[in-house]
Design a protein around this nucleic acid. Structure first.
Length: 686
RNA sequence: GGCUACGUAGCUCAGCUGGUUAGAGCGCAGCAUUCAUAAUGCUGAGGUCGGUAGUUCAAGUCUACCCGUAGCUACCA
């Protein structure tokens, strides 16, 4: 198969605030597809930029006391850092406020004008006389003309959900200055979209879009397209329209053109890329846009029409993702589910999120729910418990018994072949952007690998003879299966794959490598590849997101990062009711014995006396506690402490633990709780 | 209000053009196991598919209405 030339663009984030998990959904989706294409050996170029124009940015910069240019530069840095943290591998991350974009915006406008698709007429709009600014609906609030609710925006009422014109509001006011808006006329420029109705009817149904998206667009198409207002009056942060002083391109005119501008900028530094090859009307290369479902009309109506009339090629396809909900609800600042990329990164490994999203993403624009409990279980069970575990359970035998050498042949050719043959199906699913189906398939292979190892019980054979050829064969087979799984997962988990390449002592894995096996091959010592998600970290992230809400109000953004205290690192949990607390039965207990546990790194075995029960029997409990790093058994003997007495017993590797003793801290700094002198064993703590 | 989607086991999701006892993973329960980062294997219990009424020999799958959720509704991005 010949190499495909693919250009992928990702929706441009608005340069008005930080990247959050909702943004990341779309970028991770595109990045997985891009990485897959590159692993296939295709030339896949991936571009993005900040969307840096508009009234919103102008006002934000003003509020921050800096110029718009300074403002968007700072945001651009942050955005690039966040995307890099989440392993989103753009070839270029540019800005719509660039020379290249100005050139293309003017060019496309001129071509639209030359083909007779630009009109102009005077419209009446509300105007802020104090601020000298035309007001869009967003910046006007007033009383709903229907239900009389106060504080509603200029286009629709959130309470009675009626729609109206801003001029219908009772007592309207500018949200910027508070002034009463006045009506004012101004000349605006329009793109004659109706002229493209036939073209768009055809184009939207030609396989470029998911059906659901085409259905939605039929709404505009069937009800008759309107001319699109593409100009804004000064003051506005954007590009001035050529030959029309005081008139600026509406931000959505130059935003998609930013895709071209970014690519052009990239071409200047790359010999292998040529602008015309990708954007010329004759181009046979692929052009894919990855966007969110909120900006469908801009990309699937205005954009192709503009490209068409200005003599550029139209996109090959548009991939649309839905919105992210957290725990089944809209992201909410007060619930702590409005999680910034940076906050997430401080607490959790970005690859967890990449895996979770991949496990739920399909090609349709359905919303995706990040259920935090499900997130923890899913990642732990699939990635750590199933996949990584295969390497972990095989590597020891190979390293110890065979000096890290894999056997010359595998013991189960059928199983391996089965796993190798699935490569086509998995590739097809990635290609179709059915990542969740691909992941399901890959995990079923991981299950087969674990079943195989459990069936062959190499540890039993190794007990008799650690150098038995059969042990080497079984574990080499296991590690070869593991390698295949990592190839399949590499688009989703690139960092993990890099670590595995190091461990297996191989060069960067490509899709084609699934055809070959590692035989008679020297591997390196196994190091833990990925640790489990700890739900305490997830809780801490949610808490930190709630705190952001408070600290964000203060302009000193950095202050919260500097505090290093137990409370700042691990904030107080959600409020509970008294009955919740009362369920926990805490008792004074006397430590009658403490012992080391053979083979345990962290645990001490502690025997506790709770005194006599109603029947006059001595209540003795055994508890395993992870305090070996801080206490010696002899220090504990005779000491009194606090026991969670009604905690369900838990079977552990070294025995059953019948409760939990209370201590603070971690690592070497663990502090066991001890009551004041005189407390009697069995007393309840209230 | 209009429009577009969505609503299937505790959780997250599959179910193609309607067709045998509705599937998976996780979680849960029991058993086995202890090579592995509390990790694995086996077995099992859980849904009548948001509701109502239809079409049909046959409906989770089609139609209508209703309820719930999300989004869009062209000068916010």
């Amino acid at each position: 198969m010949s190499r495909r030339n693919i250009l992928v663009t990702n929706a441009l984030p608005y340069a008005n605030g930080p990247i959050h998990l909702g943004h990341l959904l779309g970028y991770i989706q595109a990045d997985i597809w891009v990485r897959f294409q590159r692993m296939q050996g295709n030339n896949c170029t991936y571009v993005c930029a900040d969307d840096a124009h508009g009234t919103g940015i102008m006002l934000s910069a003003e509020k921050a006391g800096v110029s718009p240019e300074e403002f968007i530069d700072a945001v651009n840095q942050e955005h690039q850092r966040d995307f890099a943290d989440f392993l989103v591998d753009f070839d270029i991350y540019h800005s719509t406020h660039s020379d290249e974009n100005k050139t293309f915006s003017s060019l496309i406008y001129e071509r639209c004008k030359a083909s007779g698709h630009i009109s102009q007429r005077s419209i009446t709009q509300l105007y802020d006389p104090e601020k000298d600014l035309f007001l869009s609906d967003r910046f006007i609030k007033g009383q709903c003309p229907k239900c009389k609710t106060e504080d509603q925006y200029g286009d629709n009422c959130e309470v009675c959900s009626s729609t109206y014109n801003a001029t219908d509001l009772i007592n309207p006011r500018s949200t910027i200055s508070g002034a009463t808006p006045v009506e004012k006329e101004s000349t605006h420029f329009f793109f004659k979209l109706p002229a493209f109705a036939d073209f768009l009817n055809e184009w939207t149904r030609s396989g470029t879009l998911p059906t659901q998206v085409a259905n939605k667009l039929a709404e505009w198409l069937d009800s008759g397209l309107q001319e699109w207002d593409i100009s804004r009056d000064a003051p506005y942060f954007g590009f001035e329209i050529p030959g029309e002083p005081g008139k600026y391109f509406y931000v959505w005119l130059d935003a998609p053109i930013g895709y071209m501008a970014s690519f052009q900028k990239l071409c200047e530094s790359r010999d292998d890329l040529n602008f015309e090859d990708y954007w010329g009307v004759e181009s046979n290369n692929e052009l894919w846009h990855f966007i969110g479902k909120d900006i469908i009309n801009f990309h699937a109506l205005f954009w192709p029409a503009m490209l068409k009339t200005s003599n550029f090629r139209t996109p090959t396809g548009i991939s649309v993702n839905g919105f992210l909900t957290v725990n089944g609800q809209k992201m909410s600042k007060s619930r702590g589910t409005f999680i910034m990329a940076e906050t997430y990164k401080q607490h959790l490994n970005p690859e967890y999120l990449r895996y979770y999203f991949a496990g739920k993403l399909g090609s349709n624009p359905d919303d995706l729910d990040l259920n935090l409990e499900d997130f923890v279980q899913r990642v732990n069970s699939d990635v750590v418990g199933k996949v990584v575990n295969i390497a972990s359970r095989c590597a020891g035998f190979i390293n110890k018994g065979f000096e890290g050498k894999l056997s010359a042949e595998v013991s189960e050719p059928d199983l391996i072949a089965d796993c190798q043959q699935t490569t086509t199906e998995i590739a097809e699913l990635y290609e179709q952007r059915e990542f969740s189906k691909a992941i399901r398939l890959i995990m079923s292979l991981a299950d087969k690998a674990n079943q195989y190892i459990a069936d062959k019980t190499p540890w039993v054979l190794a007990k008799e003879n650690p150098q038995a050829l059969e042990v080497q064969n079984i574990c080499s087979t296991g590690l070869n299966l593991f390698r295949l799984l990592i190839i399949y997962l590499k688009p989703v988990l690139p960092n993990l794959a890099n670590q595995v390449e190091e461990f297996l002592n191989v060069s960067a894995l490509q899709w084609q490598d699934a055809e070959s096996l590692l035989l008679d091959h020297q591997i390196n010592k196994f190091k833990p590849l990925m640790t489990r998600v700890e739900s305490t970290k997830v809780d801490a992230m949610v808490e930190a997101s709630k705190e952001n809400l408070n600290t964000q109000e203060n302009s000193s953004v950095d202050a919260s990062d500097k505090v290093d205290s137990p409370l700042s690192n691990d904030p107080i949990s959600d409020e509970i009711e008294f009955p919740d607390f009362a369920k926990v039965d805490l008792r004074i207990a006397k430590i009658v014995e403490a012992n080391y546990v053979e083979g345990a790194d962290k645990l001490l075995k502690i025997t506790l006396d709770l005194g006599l029960n109603a029947a006059g029997e001595q209540q003795i409990r055994t508890v395993f506690s992870g305090i070996k790093s801080a206490y010696k058994p002899e220090q504990l003997n005779g000491m009194y402490t606090v026991l969670v007495a009604n905690l369900k017993s838990r079977k552990m590797k070294f025995g059953v633990s019948e409760g939990m003793i209370l201590a603070a801290g971690e690592g070497d700094d663990i502090y066991l709780l001890e009551p004041h002198k005189g407390a009697q064993a069995g007393l309840r703590i209230t």
